[in-house]
Computed example of a mutant assay.
Amino acid sequence: MKTLIITTALLISSLLTAQTSFEQGMGKSLGLWGEGKAQEASALMERIAAAEKSNWLPNYYVALINTTEAFNPANKEKVPAMIIKAQDAIDNATLISPNNDEIMVVQAMLYTVILIQDPMTNGVKYTGLVMEQYGKALAINPNNPRAVFSKAEFEIGGAKYWGTDIKPMCAQIEKSIGLFANFKPETPFSPKWGLDRAQEALKACK
């Protein structure tokens, strides 16, 4: 997950030639993340968010960086702080852009992070919260490839745990690949990650 999202971050930062200070800052932050400097990337994105109070994207990336890094076992001791930082950023992004399906996808991912910290305690509650967020995101935009893929990926985890058939989820992953092919981000920094992950997941299905 981390490597593939970071590849997208590197691509964005490499394509941008210096323009506005916002674009420079966003490109630099995503570049730092691509270099494995997640803490520095998050800190810079937080500064951008403080300056760009009407733009939801910097807070979105603060949340995405910390949520993605929280899945890394190497960051086990940092996870509680990452969860708090990511949730604060999600809350701030949502205030700026309510009913935003991309933010809801990251919220679902963050709930997944919380769930896996203690599945026995958190399983029932956070499974419901994860599915609620994906459901809301898909109600807003049923063609959001990240929502379609991430929901299917989450459901595969549950299906494998319970020993149930994953074919329906694999079909959704295949559907998401088609959606990725037709997805056109609104801006150079709009979310566009996920295709490589979906392709790898589909290979695993087969």
Rank of each mutant, 00 (worst) to 15 (best):
M1V: 12
T3W: 02
I5V: 13
I6Q: 02
I6G: 01
T7N: 15
L11F: 10
I12A: 10
I12L: 05
L15Q: 15
L15K: 15
T17E: 09
A18M: 03
A18C: 05
Q24K: 13
G27I: 04
G27N: 02
L30Y: 07
G31W: 12
L32C: 04
W33Y: 14
E35W: 02
K37I: 03
E40R: 07
A41V: 01
M45C: 10
M45W: 04
A50L: 05
K53L: 11
N59S: 15
A63G: 11
L64E: 12
N66T: 09
N66G: 03
T67H: 07
E69A: 15
E69M: 15
E69D: 11
F71H: 10
A74W: 03
A74V: 08
N75Y: 09
N75H: 15
K78S: 08
P80H: 08
I83V: 15
A86P: 03
A86R: 07
A89W: 02
N92F: 02
A93C: 08
A93I: 06
P98Y: 12
P98E: 14
N99F: 01
N99D: 15
D101P: 04
M104Y: 15
M104F: 14
M104T: 04
M104C: 06
V105D: 12
V105R: 14
A108V: 10
T112P: 00
Q117S: 12
D118S: 14
D118W: 11
D118Q: 12
P119Q: 10
P119F: 14
N122G: 05
G123W: 09
G128F: 08
G128M: 11
M131Y: 00
M131V: 07
Q133M: 15
Y134W: 11
Y134L: 10
K136H: 08
A137T: 08
A139C: 00
I140G: 06
N141A: 11
N143S: 14
N144A: 07
R146Y: 03
V148T: 06
F149L: 09
F149T: 03
K151A: 12
E155Y: 12
G158W: 03
Y161V: 12
W162H: 07
T164M: 05
T164N: 03
T164G: 01
D165G: 05
I166S: 03
P168W: 15
P168F: 13
P168Q: 08
Q172A: 13
K175V: 02
L179I: 10
L179D: 01
F180W: 09
A181Y: 06
N182M: 10
E186D: 14
P188C: 06
F189A: 05
P191N: 04
P191E: 06
D196Q: 14
A198S: 10
E200M: 13
E200G: 01
A201F: 11
L202C: 05
K203G: 04
A204G: 00
K206A: 07
